[in-house]
């Protein structure tokens, strides 16, 4: 089964940096997909979602159009809601953001920007996705 990584961030340099990290650390089976806001990621999932594959969303919080929280609220009613994996990747070091993230069942991790080699090791060790890297 393939693991597709979606990088959702309005900061173009960050999406580029994270793409490099994801590729280098082999987190994604397919090339990671880049989106500059939650709405674009949502639209991609509605049209391209394939139940035969798994999707890991690296989600920023603070974005225009549809921010990270709004994205999470929107996916709750989608058919893929239970299968989607989300890791919040934010510049926020605010503990209330971390607490709020825990209230969403899809969120399996909370990382601070930028993604580094250690962050990638952390991602690979999360039990729900570890099998993809063994």
């Amino acid at each position: 089964m393939n693991l597709n990584v979606l990088i959702v961030d309005d900061d173009k340099m960050i999406t580029l940096l994270h793409k490099v990290m994801v590729v280098k650390n082999k987190i994604s089976t397919n090339p990671p997909l880049l989106f500059s806001d939650g709405k674009m990621a949502l639209e991609f999932l509605s049209s391209e979602y394939n139940p035969e594959e798994r999707y890991l969303v690296l989600l920023d919080i603070n974005m225009p159009v549809l921010n990270g929280w709004e994205f999470l609220d929107s996916i709750q009613s989608e058919q893929y809601a239970n299968d989607l994996l989300v890791i919040i990747v934010t510049s926020s070091v605010d503990s209330s953001d971390k607490q709020k993230a825990r209230t969403y069942p899809q969120v399996i991790g909370f990382l601070e920007k930028p993604l580094r080699a250690e962050s990638c090791d952390f991602i690979k060790a999360i039990p729900s996705i570890a099998p993809f890297f063994s």
């Binding site: 900061d11 940096l17 994270h18 280098k24 510049s91 070091v93 605010d94 930028p114």
Partner: peptide, 28 residues
């Protein structure tokens, strides 16, 4: 501080990581 100040800082940190590890990246 949390959302706005850390945004460019995170970028700098990521970029420096990239430089120091000298990955040959096609992107940059």
């Amino acid at each position: 501080q949390s959302h706005v100040v850390r945004a460019p800082l995170a970028r700098i940190m990521g970029l420096v990581d990239l430089l120091s590890e000298r990955h040959d990246s096609e992107e940059l």
